[in-house]
Design a protein around this nucleic acid. Structure first.
Lengths: 224, 224
DNA sequence: GGGACGGTTCGGCGGGCGCCGAAGTGTTCC
DNA sequence: GGAACACTTCGGCGCCCGCCGAACCGTCCC
């Protein structure tokens, strides 16, 4: 086919799409977990995973009798997000029935390696409002933002880093941008390590802890 | 299916992918032109175009007995580019045989509404080197860049604009970033209007005119 | 009106793909 | 060694989808 069509075909299947979206939490899943998650048999999952790996979208790691698999990299995650976020003009039906289960994810979740959902958008807004990132023309970290990253998160950009310090990521529940890139990853890592947020369930949803409420409030004036 | 899989399925076909890539030149094509371009019959093209329109990826406009069709918007173009650009680790086979026809496109072409190819990358590098855009942390237009846009291109960002002033777009021939967003569009528009570049053939390729060589040299120090 | 032309609709063909169950391989634990 | 377990391979079924040719519908031009 054509490279474009080949790449797209990897996503163009209910089961494979479900795999990729599940893996957007940035963690490695076993083949069996993915199979149960998508509601297919182990054999089907095995085949589909192999296709995704062959297509370069997933990276695998064998450990004993387990096959761990994760998204191949930030580019793969970005592509998955971009496809999931594309939704031309549909004014969000947003059925209330299904929203119960999705509620936790809508409030706060991880998106590959950064925070998303309402929390992610709030954090992004707060950082913009405080002049830590500048969205007036593109998106960039301000000098004040660099200081904040060093002070609050103890993160300093490696010299000669090729990964952009900050990148926007369109949120598929909020339909607004939140912060990805190295900054987003650092914020997410710090939040998990310091117990500001905790993963709930086996999916992407996270919950802001009391300590997190305090921290986000003090550091950014966000009440969550 | 799932929204993700549905969207991906639109691209997951040789013919439809060829349509989208052709339309990346930002212009409207007739159904017949697309059919010939992709090497399928008119009936097939008609059906596939209808699917892309129904999927919200293409916008159509009927004029007399012609059906003009173009990409639905910048998001659709960005998605197409993102899919085309994703190519995990393949170190560019770059067959010399096919490169003849593609040579013009590799040198300079439009990418939806901005300039790409070697020219696009050179312009992006020059603007970065001259401090008009800042890529140290994300991508943003500097104050000097705003002045340059006003002076050289007579472009001023509308107040309250929701489109980012500048955005990067990964080039599928150069595998490097060039400038998209409102800045990229303004630069492309100015270049075409002022005769700095001229479209060649029916595709996306453009050619730098002598006047363009002078202008790019004086404005940005780019020799092209 | 008549002919040329762009586009669409319909029927039908062929191939590819997703899925499963059954059998098989390799690993872990007792 | 044997049993449980995670995963893979294979054969086969059924469906979907891309494609074409033929007939048809509008539009444009003489």
């Amino acid at each position: 086919m054509s490279p474009l069509a080949d790449t797209a075909a990897l996503f163009a299947d209910r089961t494979r799409a479900a795999f990729c979206q599940a893996l957007l939490d940035g963690r490695a899943w076993t083949a069996g977990e993915l199979a149960r998650h998508a509601g297919v048999t182990a054999s089907t999952a095995s085949e589909q995973i192999s296709r995704l790996v062959a297509g370069g979208l997933l990276a695998e790691e064998r450990q004993g009798r387990h096959r761990y698999v994760r998204l191949a990299g930030p580019e793969a995650a970005a592509l998955t997000e971009a496809l999931a976020a594309y939704d031309p003009g549909t004014p969000r039906p947003h059925t209330l029935a299904a929203s119960g289960r999705q509620d936790a994810e809508a409030r706060a979740r991880t998106c590959y390696d950064h925070l998303a959902g309402r929390l992610g958008v709030d954090l992004a807004d707060a950082m913009t409002a405080r002049g830590l990132v500048d969205t007036a023309s593109g998106i960039a970290v301000t000098p004040a933002g660099r200081d904040w990253l060093a002070d609050a998160l103890d993160y300093r950009q490696p010299t000669g880093a090729r990964r952009p310090l900050v990148r926007t990521c369109l949120d598929w529940t909020e339909r607004r941008s939140h912060l990805a890139g190295a900054l987003g990853a650092a914020l997410c890592t710090a939040s998990l390590e310091r117990g500001w947020v905790r993963r709930v369930g086996s999916g992407r949803a996270v919950k802001v802890t009391p300590a997190g409420s305090t921290a986000f409030g003090e550091l950014l004036g966000v009440e969550a």
